[in-house]
Amino acid sequence: MSLYPTLWAAFLMFSLGLFGVLSRRHLVAIIMGIELMFNASNLALVTIGWAYGVITGQIIALFAIAITVSEVAVGLALFLLVERVRKTVYADETNLMKG
């Protein structure tokens, strides 16, 4: 086990998630990108906590998982709502805010 490779893997995962969030069209795909980012940050937290020798990293990661679960529940519910009301599943077609 070593710190740098794991951290970088986590960073890469985070950036890939960000890329997904920024570029995917399907709303569920965007949610999956967010999941990826969350997961990467959890991994980084656990890794750093392990290197420091403190348990705080794990606890915050645990909290983050709980928050993620609520986020997914609400996000998917919102997605269902958008799909039902706007009859579309694509992020760029829900552009009511266009100025």
Partner: peptide, 11 residues
Amino acid sequence: LAKSPSSSTFG
């Protein structure tokens, strides 16, 4: 930290 992680198994 990377050089000398505490690597305690407290999990």
